[in-house]
Amino acid sequence: MDAELRHRIYQALASGGPAPRAAELGPAALRRLHDAHALVLGDDGEVRMALPFSNVDTDYVVESDGRRWRANCAWDTFGIVHLLGLAQARIVDLGGRGREARTLRVEAGELLDRDGVVAFPLPARLWWQDIVFT
């Protein structure tokens, strides 16, 4: 049953929509998925992340064929492109927190702009201690 719930959330986010609300999904089941790192709940108990998708507005957006998805970080924008098999996409980093705004292009399934670095604030062993900050 938790697998079906997880799948339902991912299907909603993959289609470009928001995740269903916690009251509709069942807070206890959502908490189990959160504890299993299958998704991340916000302080309000609603779905905040189902990696690589974000269920809240962020600085990172993927656009393709008139559709739009919110990502948690630069890495997740790439994850969305691969997960959805997007041949063409526009990856937008709105900037902030020391980053300049930037747009990357995907054509024929390949990232055209590969210069630069993606910074991580925490070492890998600590990512899940604060996945939102990471």
């Binding site: 691969h82 702009d113 590969r114």
Partner: peptide, 14 residues
């Protein structure tokens, strides 16, 4: 990590 590493890593991570 570089953008290129991140792109390649994301092909399988999710």
């Amino acid at each position: 990590m570089t953008v290129d590493q991140c792109w390649r890593l994301s092909t399988t991570w999710y």
